[in-house]
């Protein structure tokens, strides 16, 4: 579905170089990396918003990009925002027709947010706005959905809703989903595959259970992080816990190791 080969992105220096991975249809992929490592740049390159300086991105379907925030010049209703997802179909002139409206409404209904249709998007909560943006991506009829930190600014309840929506889209629609996150537990929760961006030329990519390990995470964030398994009503829950206090102790002892 998605094939990235030899991808390189540079500003002054290379921030990514020689990245290869493939992702099959209906798979969910998480991208983890520290701030400034190039997660967003990578997403923009996959979305085709910027041309990579090296390498290729091939995708066997339409791509939709869900930004973390949007800042509209003026407020608009959620329905009108979802309609903008139909831009590709409408073209460079003319206006969306009845069918486009129907699709937009369906997408709102699909995410159970039809009640927001006429509400101004500046008057929605962060979680509600994120759902509207996903509905918009859905309305574009995409096969691959790229989400830039979709759950970063949300509370636990809303995080759960967004994660559930992403998993649901992949499972029942066969949608390929790629998202960036700072929360390893999100990757462990829904991603089949995870990409860790250690350094410009240093990546780890593979099935999530083997990739998102204590060692890899500790290396990624320069902080001890422990992966845990919990038994909850017979379900096995995988999660990860950062040992925040380690930074303070390390500073006290003069230890500079990760």
């Amino acid at each position: 579905m998605l094939k990235v080969s030899g991808l390189g992105i540079r500003y002054a220096d290379w921030i990514l170089r020689g990245l290869d991975f493939t992702l099959g249809a209906g798979e969910v992929m998480a991208i983890l990396g520290p701030n400034g490592r190039g997660k967003s740049s990578l997403m923009r390159a996959i979305a085709g918003l910027t041309r990579p300086d090296e390498g290729r991105v091939e995708c066997a379907g339409d791509i939709a990009y869900v930004p973390q925030f949007i800042t509209p010049g003026f407020d608009m209703s959620a329905l009108d925002l979802v309609l903008t997802g139909r831009s590709r179909q409408v073209g460079w002139m003319g206006s969306p027709g009845a069918r486009d409206r129907e699709i937009a409404r369906d997408c709102l209904r699909r995410l159970d947010i039809e009640r927001f249709a006429q509400r101004g998007i500046n008057h929605l909560s962060g979680g509600e706005r994120q759902l509207v943006l996903i509905a918009r991506a859905l309305a574009s009829g995409c096969h691959l959905m790229l989400l830039d930190e979709p759950a970063s600014a949300l509370d636990f309840h809303n995080q759960a809703i967004i994660l559930d929506v992403m998993r649901e889209l992949a499972q029942s629609d066969g949608m390929t989903v790629v998202f960036t996150t700072h929360a390893p537990q999100h990757a462990l929760e829904i991603a089949n595959r995870t990409l860790l961006l250690h350094d410009a030329r240093d990546f780890a990519y593979g099935p999530t259970p083997e990739t998102v390990t204590s060692a890899q995470l500790s290396r990624l964030y320069h902080l001890p992080i422990r992966r845990l398994s919990l038994d909850e009503d017979g379900h096995r829950i995988e999660t990860a816990i950062p040992l925040y206090h380690a930074i303070a102790r390390r500073a006290a002892t003069g230890d500079t190791r990760a």
């Binding site: 509209p72 409408v90 460079w92 206006s95």
Partner: peptide, 30 residues
């Protein structure tokens, strides 16, 4: 009036409009 919807999309920002597949330069020129 012909490009009323496209102008609506442009009000989200050029980046977003481009990501949505709008031919931004053509719409702006027009």
């Amino acid at each position: 009036w012909l490009i009323r919807f496209q102008l609506h999309v442009m009000s989200l920002g050029e980046d977003d409009a481009r990501a949505l597949g709008l031919p931004v330069t053509r719409v702006r020129t027009l």
